[in-house]
Design a protein around this nucleic acid. Structure first.
Lengths: 150, 150
DNA sequence: CGTTTACCTGACGCTAACGTCAACGTCAAG
DNA sequence: CTTGACGTTGACGTTAGCGTCAGGTAAACG
C-alpha cells in the first residue's frame, strides 16, 4: 500500500503558513523549493512542505534565504547528513553570535531612549506650570474629543 | 568680541564622526543638514555640527532619517521647544516599544537557535564514534593549533 | 456557452541608506 | 606646469524580500 502521498496547491500552503503565494514562488525562484508541476500548476508534496517548514524556521531566526538554501542543498547532497549537520551547526552558532550582538545593541538603544525619555519628562514637568497657549489648545481639543466620544 | 565661530569642512566632520562625506551630503539631500557654502564647498558651523550629533543619536536608537528630520524641523519651528519635546517624547516612546518588541523577537530566535544547536551537537556526538575523515582532519587541525599556541 | 476562480509568467516597484562612478573645478606644493 | 588632495553634482547600483500589476491559461460551475 503505497498511499498516494498528499499534495498541496500553492494557496493551500500559503494559507497554512500564512505566507503569500508570491512568497512561495519567490522561494522557488531562489531555489529553495522545487515542487512538481501539473501542467503549469505547482503541486507541492509532503517533502516540499517539510522544506518549507525549514525555510520558515530559518527565516524566524533571521537566516537570509541564500544561507537557508545552502543548508537545504547540503541536506540533499549529504545522505548521511553529517556535513549538513556540521554546516548547520556552524551557521547557527554564527547566527547566535550575531543575534546576541544585536540584542546588545538594542539594549543599548533602549537604555539611551529611556534616558532621553526621562530627561524630556523632567523638562516637560518643569515647564508644565507655565502652560503655553499651544498646550492649552491641545487640552481644549482633547476635551472636545472626549465629549464627542461620549 | 564676537569670536568668529569655528567652522568645519565636510571631511573634517566626516572623520570626527566616522561617517563618509557621502553620508553628510545625503543627510543634506534629505533636509537634515543645511550648511553654508563657500562657493560650492560646504561650510559647517557649530550649529550644523550639533545637528549632526542629534542625527547620529537618532540613528543610534534606530530612528529613520525622516523622523529625525521631523524632530529637527520642529526644534527650529518651536522656539519654546515645548511641542518639540512632546513630539520627541512620543517618538521616543514609540521607538522604545518597537525596540522592546524587537528584543523579544530576538530573544525568541536566540532560544530557538540554542535549541537547534543543542540538538545538532547531540546528533553529532552520537555519530562521533564512527568518526568521519573530515572530523579526524578537524581534530588534527585543532591539535596542531593548540600546540602552536603553547 | 460564458463566467468565475485559481493559477501562471514576466517585469517593474518599493524601502533605507548610502556606495560608486563619471566628469569636472580649485588650489597649493613641488 | 603638473600632480595630488579635496571638493562638487548628478545619476545609477546595491541588498532583501517580496508586492503589485498586466496579460494569459485552464478547469469547473451554472
Amino acid at each position: 500500500m503505497v498511499r498516494p502521498e498528499r499534495t498541496f496547491t500553492i494557496s493551500e500552503l500559503a494559507r497554512e503558513f500564512k505566507v503569500t503565494p508570491r512568497a512561495l514562488r519567490f522561494y522557488e525562484d531562489k531555489g529553495l523549493l522545487a515542487p512538481q508541476r501539473d501542467g503549469l500548476n505547482r503541486v507541492y508534496s509532503g517533502r516540499d512542505r517539510a522544506r518549507l517548514v525549514l525555510v520558515l524556521k530559518g527565516k524566524s531566526v533571521g537566516l537570509p534565504l541564500v544561507e537557508i538554501k545552502e543548508l537545504l542543498d547540503l541536506y540533499n547532497a549529504d545522505e548521511q547528513h553529517r556535513a549538513q549537520n556540521e554546516a548547520a551547526l556552524k551557521k547557527f552558532r554564527e547566527r547566535l553570535v550575531a543575534l546576541e550582538e544585536q540584542r546588545h545593541d538594542i539594549e543599548g538603544a533602549i537604555d539611551a531612549l529611556k534616558d532621553g525619555i526621562a530627561r524630556l519628562e523632567q523638562v516637560l514637568a518643569e515647564k508644565a506650570p507655565a502652560a503655553t497657549i499651544s498646550a492649552a489648545r491641545a487640552y481644549e481639543r482633547e476635551a472636545r474629543r472626549r465629549l464627542a466620544e461620549a
